[in-house]
């Protein structure tokens, strides 16, 4: 199987400041990978580079086996139709209504009629649990949680194979983030998505990720399952996972991990 994402020998440098030093990362189809790291460790930069929004100083980024830099515009356009991105603040177009925001990618394809687009948008709204009466509202009139879910609906409307989530649960209350995590998990199961997310929220991280990529000291210090990540003795990992908050989150899922082990 070709990897969905393949980052090889990636360097990022801003002036004298090296953010990534010879970083490698491979994501296989169907995996849920979380990027974690302290502030300024370059998680968001790495994600933006995989999205082609920024260009690394050195190294290659391949998505669906196609290099992002040096490929022709037509090929890149094809990649962009196969991935969906949930930005941290949602990035809904504030001049368009909720309906038009979700319909925009479909309309851009120019393959479907308005009747089809309407049903598709309503279906996606149902999938992310947004009532239809909100469809005519403008993004400025919505709460943060609703914006996140609508942005997810927009990211999913073209049935992407790869989804990027930037802090999917940041700014949501515990109840909402719980339901958001459930939503993403069920979407992952039904649609067999590959998910790459940046998150600080341990609960989200623990309950969703197949693999965890820990960014520190300008490279990936660990790339593996939660168990493998915790086993590494590194100050960041000790603080992040085995600090007070980390232990609390881990103990909450410890029960489920054990259960799975017995089956």
């Amino acid at each position: 199987m070709t990897p969905v994402i393949e980052v090889a020998g990636l360097w990022t440098q801003f002036g004298d400041h090296v953010v990534h030093r010879d970083l490698n990362l491979t994501v296989m189809p169907g995996e849920v990978v979380s990027l974690v790291g302290g502030s300024g460790s370059g998680k968001t930069t790495l994600m933006r580079q995989i999205l082609g929004l920024e260009r690394p100083t050195r190294g290659t980024v391949k998505v669906f086996g196609i290099p992002l830099h040096g490929s022709n515009a037509q090929l890149l356009h094809k990649i962009r139709k196969r991935w969906g991105v949930l930005f941290q603040e949602g990035a809904l177009y504030s001049a368009l209504s909720v309906f038009d925001n979700i319909a925009l990618p479909l309309r851009e394809l120019r393959a479907f009629d308005e009747d089809f687009i309407r049903d598709m948008v309503l279906l996606k709204l149902d999938m992310v649990d947004i009532e239809r009466r909100h469809a005519a509202k403008m993004p400025a009139d919505l709460s943060g949680g609703m914006i996140k879910r609508i942005a997810l609906a927009r990211a999913l409307v073209l049935e992407p194979e790869l989804v990027f989530l930037d802090e999917p649960t940041a700014g949501l209350d515990p109840d909402r983030s719980e339901s958001f995590v459930k939503l993403i998990r069920s979407l992952h199961e039904t649609l067999n998505l590959t998910v790459v997310m940046v998150t600080h929220d341990l609960d989200t991280l623990v309950s969703l990720s197949d693999k965890i990529a820990v960014l520190a000291e300008q490279k990936l210090i660990v790339y593996g399952t939660l168990r493998e990540a915790i086993a590494v003795r590194h100050p960041f990992i000790l603080n992040f996972f085995l600090g007070e908050r980390g232990l609390r989150a881990l103990s909450a899922v410890a029960a489920t991990i054990n259960l799975n082990g017995k089956h």
């Binding site: 009747d115 089809f116 049903d119 598709m120 279906l123 996606k124 049935e159 649609l191």
Partner: peptide, 15 residues
């Protein structure tokens, strides 16, 4: 199959 295909077929069935 995905939702797009399913919707296309379902619309042909008269919803």
């Amino acid at each position: 199959l995905d939702h797009i295909g399913a919707l296309l077929i379902w619309q042909a069935w008269g919803k």
